[in-house]
């Protein structure tokens, strides 16, 4: 059986909130290392990969592999009933029909309990190869959100170009064009505002802004976001969580001219 308790429901609420508009039905794959999720969006352009490691929970117990087939819209309805600071406990039997969720507000001695019906989901699992990316950009997640929102007003696509001089986001549309360039920036007193660019070779790729703005719904999960690019492979956008847990998005590039 599965039993996984989070000190605050916040993490799980925000993670589900971040992906619910991109993927609808997906399996939460539970085993002794934690809870993992992989799912493609309907048009098979983007892929979500989430890993909540066992260490993120206290306690965490899962003796065998359990797949929890969940409709995220339904899960969102249940999670809406959880206070951000409530403790959250997820429980399921070995071959479960339901996912049991318990929210506890310890200060108020209030306990709420929900059973969410599960479904059989037969999903393709994609193998994501280990990639040495040509460019890895770490930047404030709020800045990334601002850039994608601002450029969305100009065009449906953005070209991300990483060079030794910095990273440039540029868009061309019917009304004109726009760009934002960020240079490496490491303020000693404000680590959350750091922009770091690790570059093995210059790279430029074009992506759909519709998906990038969607990924930015994960912004509350982490102050920093990591963008990993290599020529002609999907962009990886990573929101790192405490203890090595993560929420990653992969986005297939736009190709040709």
């Amino acid at each position: 059986m599965l039993e996984a308790r989070l000190d605050t429901a916040n993490l799980f609420k925000s993670a589900v909130d971040a992906i619910k508009d991109l993927v609808q039905d997906c399996n939460f794959d539970c085993n002794d290392s934690g809870i993992a999720l992989q799912a493609m969006d309907n048009s098979h352009v983007a892929l979500v990969s989430m890993m909540l490691k066992a260490e993120a929970f206290s306690p965490f117990r899962c003796d065998r592999n359990i797949a929890l087939g969940v409709n995220l819209t339904s899960l969102t309805k249940v999670l809406r009933a959880a206070g951000r600071d409530d403790t959250l406990t997820l429980k399921a039997e070995d071959a479960p029909d339901v996912l049991n969720l318990v929210f506890e507000a310890t200060a108020q001695d209030r306990i709420s309990e929900y059973d969410l019906k599960l479904m059989d989901i037969d999903q393709e699992h994609l193998g994501i190869p280990d990639t040495e990316y040509a460019a890895t950009i770490s930047m404030p997640s709020a800045e990334f959100k601002r850039i994608t929102t601002d450029l969305m007003a100009m065009s449906e696509s953005v070209t991300i170009e990483a060079t030794k001089d910095g990273v440039k986001f540029s868009s061309t549309g019917d009304i004109g064009n726009g760009s934002i360039t960020l240079r490496q920036h490491t303020p000693v007193d404000k680590p959350n505002e750091t922009v770091e660019i690790e570059l093995s070779e210059p790279v430029a790729l074009t992506f759909s802004l519709k998906y990038l703005t969607n990924f930015c719904k994960a912004q509350p999960l982490s102050n920093q976001v990591k963008l990993c690019l290599s020529a002609e492979v999907p962009l990886m956008v990573e929101y790192g969580l405490e203890g090595g847990s993560y929420l990653r998005f992969y986005l297939a590039p736009k190709i040709g001219d």
């Binding site: 352009v45 699992h125 994609l126 696509s157 759909s208 992969y250 297939a252 736009k254 190709i255 040709g256």
Partner: peptide, 14 residues
């Protein structure tokens, strides 16, 4: 103009 590629073109189905 540029064409949107699909994710399965890069990551193989397991």
């Amino acid at each position: 103009s540029s064409q949107q590629s699909r994710i399965e073109g890069f990551f193989k189905v397991q």
